[in-house]
Design a protein around this nucleic acid. Structure first.
Lengths: 206, 206
DNA sequence: TCCTCCATGTTTACAGGGAAAACTTTTCTG
DNA sequence: CAGAAAAGTTTTCCCTGTAAACATGGAGGA
């Protein structure tokens, strides 16, 4: 409502603007209870405008979740970059990146795994989730190939690992891993328990 | 709406009736997106009646969650009853009971761990959740005392265990542990990975 | 016994919200 | 340059959560 050029009738990229607003609100409230009307309001358009870009509110939420999975995947990949020595270290780094992501964006993380982001309702969301999951799978495969992880069903290990990492993320996010209760680095400790289960044999102190 | 006696003005136990209706709807839809008005409708009272028993919708949801925790605790205790031999077997039994509970009542389970059942907002809910969590803690303690589990920080093990069990429950509930993908008994397999991490030494095939 | 109080219901009222429909303004395209 | 499609806006509908005011009937004291 100013500058030299006044806002044109067409927003330019309302699709993206709505997503950004919604992401901001999600980050601020840590909940997706916000109303679509409020998103529109803050974006400076009428309350019906969003419906030109998203079938309904859930469609917007699914898009947010999809972006979340993409970001999470990137965060995990980035954590791997430094070329860590062992499979074990790599795995731990990726897991910690996931948990850090959850702690940094709890609202988004929760949305990603909530029923309101129904993966069956959106192939793109499903695909993004699977791709991120794939990072974990790849690490397990590498671990098995270089002989550091026990050679049992990859998918069983993946289930265990994923469950562990996701569970830890939830606990950490909710502040249920307080230092007094659970030691100095509970995430590391819990991951060590997991890694001991995955590993070929050695039980050295990481 | 008939029988010989017509419903009196006072319902008798509307509090309980509302809970029952809501639990039924939760089980039917696997979501707590139902409206309070619909709950009232199905219970056969006016849409404002519930407010005499619950401050708001969330209060009802918290009560449902509390009941869920009580039931989950009972399910786990029951699973322990047969007097299983080793700590390991007991632990696995309790974990499986938890996962079975989640698969049987996915809506309730999800509600219990959702932000809509804010434990900070209701001491009774918080207490119930902690009591259920305590079952796990007790099993770990027993395991350490009889020397079958490694004697590291109980709370670290608890975090790892809880994360694992909860994570598996979520995956199982969402049907993401399909047999083709993950072997015949993925839960058992994943728990074995965990138990191997917890255990003192032996890596026998359970 | 009867009267009055209070918990428990009901009706009414209101401020939003989600979503559809109909209308308007740009932009794109043949 | 016409006209269709895209992207906004306004209007409208029905629904929800929740508060407030009113009604009812059972329990306890005069």
């Amino acid at each position: 409502m100013s500058d030299t050029k006044q806002r044109p009738y067409h927003h330019g990229d309302l699709h993206r603007a709505l997503i950004d607003t919604a992401l901001a609100m999600l980050a601020a409230d840590q909940t997706w209870a916000f109303t679509l009307r409020e998103v529109a309001r803050r974006t400076g358009v009428s309350h019906a405008a969003p419906y030109k870009h998203f079938r309904d509110k859930e469609a917007l939420l699914r898009e947010l979740a999809r972006i979340g999975f993409v970001r999470l995947g990137q965060a995990m990949e980035t954590a791997l970059f430094p070329g860590l020595p062992s499979s074990r270290e790599k795995f731990v780094a990726a897991a910690q990146a996931c948990i850090a992501f959850a702690c940094h964006s709890p609202g988004l993380y929760r949305l990603m795994f909530s029923a309101d982001a129904d993966k069956a309702a959106d192939p793109r969301l499903h695909e993004a989730a699977m791709a991120t999951f794939g990072v974990l799978l790849r690490l397990l495969q590498e671990g098995q190939q270089d002989g550091r992880f026990r050679a049992v069903s990859i998918t069983a290990q993946a289930a265990a690992s994923w469950a562990q990492v996701h569970g830890l993320a939830m606990l950490a996010m909710n502040g249920q891993l307080l230092e007094e209760k659970v030691g100095p680095d509970p995430v590391r400790a819990a991951l060590d328990v997991l890694m001991d289960g995955l590993s070929q044999s050695s039980r050295k102190g990481h």
